[in-house]
């Protein structure tokens, strides 16, 4: 009689809003976000600093501080409700079903514990392994994430490893208990390009081997383009465009997404190609603008954009291409308000 879990989306977020209480007033970091992720897919979440991409990914797995945070909406992950649930309940899911790879492995790892022990810890807690078995499995996991001489490295402290190695250790901890869903928050930011390629390849391999679902949070459009199935572009706490990766890059609808692409220097463009920058900077989320949040920086904005916020709608060209814009690019029909749709 139970619903077959495998056909349901592994992540189902509805009207999720996360607000932080700040001395200046409430700051809505994630504003009315809805999204679903099917099993085995990878979703790239892109945006600039402060766009809410990290808060969104952490909200989805319930990994937020308990003070000064209020949340509305729902988020279901692998059949568990995440919003408004105690940490004790979330702990049943953390580690064994969902796991996270943090941006800065130096601060995310315990500096005073050997990395082998840190991996073994979650095995002993979640899988109730014996000390000895957990230790052996930790070495095995280090080998799996491509760390040379894992027996020796298991005894190392985080500060004795390079940045790339530390990120591999983080990934080993994340996959230790066989999670179904992985959130990677800027996993390669701060790593050199050759090491970045190694780490992204590793995540790709793990996904193929164990059918992992992935949220990849990044500011790097190159990472998104080459490593994800779907993309969500965030701006000022909202998803402003979402589509399968190939569809998005082939037919951008939002002027903001276009602006991001045009301001990114490309290795395949000739030297001294003039970049088109986006003037200004993102709005203050304590006092967000009334209409479209991007309107103050948008070259195509009209009075309507400043007055009325466009809803996230499906394109008439492709049903799984969503955007929030009154004047979309690429031949998409403009967003319509619910009253106009009737």
């Amino acid at each position: 009689m139970s619903i077959d879990q495998t056909t349901l989306p592994i992540v189902d977020v509805n009207h999720l809003t996360t607000t932080f209480a700040t001395p200046r007033g409430p700051l809505t970091a994630v504003n009315d976000v809805s999204l679903t992720i099917q099993r085995g897919r990878s979703l790239g979440v892109v945006g600039e600093s402060g766009s809410g991409k990290t808060v969104l990914s952490r909200s989805i797995i319930g990994l937020l501080p308990t003070f000064n945070v209020s949340q509305t909406g729902t988020a279901m992950v692998n059949g568990h409700q995440v919003i408004g649930v105690s940490n004790k309940q979330l702990r049943e899911m953390w580690g064994s079903e969902v796991a996270m790879v943090f941006q800065d492995p130096m601060t995310a790892l315990t500096p005073t514990k050997r990395v082998g022990e840190q991996i073994a810890e979650s095995l002993r807690i979640n899988l109730k392994m014996s000390r000895k078995d957990a230790k052996a499995r930790a070495v095995e996991l280090l080998r799996q994430v491509g760390i040379p001489s894992p027996e020796r490295r298991a005894k190392a402290y985080p500060n004795q490893l390079s940045g790339g190695m530390r990120q591999r250790v983080m990934i080993a901890i994340a996959i230790a208990c066989g999670p179904k869903f992985l959130v990677a928050d800027e996993p390669t930011t701060g790593l050199d390009v050759t090491v970045q390629a190694q780490v992204l390849d590793l995540i790709g391999e793990l996904r193929r081997e164990s059918d992992l679902t992935l949220i990849l949070v990044t500011h790097d459009l190159g990472v998104v383009a080459t490593r994800t199935d779907d993309v969500a572009v965030m701006y000022a706490g909202r998803i402003v465009e979402q589509a399968p990766t190939k569809e998005l890059f082939a037919n951008v609808a939002m002027p903001y997404t276009k602006g991001l692409l045009d301001s990114t220097p490309r290795i395949d463009a000739p030297s001294h190609t003039r970049l088109t920058s986006i003037d200004g900077r993102p709005p203050d989320l304590v006092n967000p603008p009334k209409g479209c949040a991007f309107a103050p920086r948008c070259t195509m904005a009209t009075e309507k954009c400043h007055e009325e916020r466009p809803p996230l709608v499906a394109s008439t060209l492709s049903a799984n291409h969503l955007f929030a814009c009154w004047y979309p690019l690429g031949g998409h029909a403009p967003a319509t308000t619910p009253s106009e749709q009737q």
């Binding site: 390009v193 790097d220 190159g222 998104v224 383009a225 190939k246 890059f249 490309r266 290795i267």
Partner: peptide
């Protein structure tokens, strides 16, 4: 190893 923002 450098990435191009183009899925193709």
């Amino acid at each position: 190893a450098a990435l191009v923002p183009d899925p193709n």
